[in-house]
Amino acid sequence: MAEVNNCPCCGLANLIVALRTLDQQDNVVTIFHCTNCCALVPYYPDKPNEIITHQADFHANYWSSSTKEDVILESNAMIHTVDFYKDYLDYFGPESEILDLGGGRGLLTKALLERGYRARGCDASAELVRIGRTYLDIPDHLYTTEDILSFSKHYKSTPGHPAGAIFLWHVIEHLEDPLNVLRSLKDLLRSDGVIIAQGPLLDKNYIFPEHRFLHSESNIGWLAKELDMKLIFLDSYSEERFASFVLSKLDHPSSGLEIFNVSDVHDAMGSLFGTLSNALHLTKNF
């Protein structure tokens, strides 16, 4: 039987076997459920020692064939994401910066700039940052080669601090110590600031070693409680099997959603498959 030690999300040894399934490469993988934070953890025995470096190299290789035309098209598509969160972003006014951290090729940073927001971002991969600067004409000082914790330390001493909103777009599931990173980012925000995030739910396409864990609705609720933030938006019924959510600091005027922590493995799996059923049902209706 596969064994893992600590949950990559919360760091505790509260993992129990949830199911065995196929991963993205059709390998049989054991998925563990954390009874503390409700993350879903795929078991892969060979884990890299330098997680940040490994993740940066993985994503640089993944996007190595990007053409300028592709990157421009994808960045233009990200404008729809910026527009979707317009009400949250406009609330802060022009004086507050919007950050895009772990932003890969800079697609979202460029989209934010195109919509007139004061934005800057970072990524740990020098190659992906080069693509963003070169193909999307993002000024060097607005998109830097840094891991998120390093960026956080530097940002605290800049005139733009504190920020209004921070985007973590398919980032949290890759982090070595997500709680520590999220706490450091919370400190960068205004007292009414928000973290806007999207990440993968349980789906064969998203089970691979670089996804250190997968979200569940309860996991996102747990993150909000652990960070002493409000969960003010959650959508987990997408056809793509992504969860999108917004966490706010306590002074934000929006009301927090009611949070349920489904820690029992049988209840958790029922909840996950219920979410999948709803997503499939909604997809068929369009």
Score class of each variant (00 low, 15 high):
H33A: 11
Y43N: 15
T21H: 03
L22I: 03
C34N: 13
F32N: 01
K68A: 09
W63F: 03
I16Q: 09
T21E: 02
E69P: 01
I31P: 06
I52W: 02
I52N: 09
A60E: 12
V17I: 12
K68W: 06
P42M: 15
S75E: 03
I16P: 02
D70C: 02
E74W: 08
D70P: 01
D26K: 10
F32A: 01
T30G: 14
T67G: 06
S66K: 04
I31D: 11
H33Q: 11
S65L: 03
Q24Y: 07
A18C: 11
N27S: 07
E50W: 06
S66D: 11
I52Y: 01
C34S: 10
I72Y: 01
E74D: 08
V71W: 03
Q25I: 08
P48A: 01
A39W: 04
P48M: 05
D26R: 10
A77T: 05
P45W: 15
T53L: 15
E74T: 06
A39D: 07
V29P: 09
D57Y: 07
N36I: 09
Q25H: 07
Q25A: 11
S65N: 13
D70F: 10
V28R: 13
A13D: 05
N61L: 09
K47W: 06
V29R: 15
I52C: 02
L22D: 11
I31K: 14
T30C: 13
V71E: 05
P48Y: 02
I52V: 15
N36Q: 10
V71I: 11
V17P: 03
V41A: 00
V28G: 13
A60R: 10
H54F: 13
W63L: 08
S75C: 04
A56H: 00
I31C: 12
D26N: 08
D23S: 12
S66N: 08
P48Q: 00
C38K: 09
S75T: 03
K47D: 10
L15T: 00
I16L: 08
Y44M: 14
V28Q: 13
T35N: 10
H54W: 11
M78C: 03
N27K: 12
L22E: 09
T67P: 06
N14S: 08
A77G: 02
E69L: 03
N14M: 02
N14C: 03
I52E: 15
L15D: 00
S65R: 06
E74V: 02
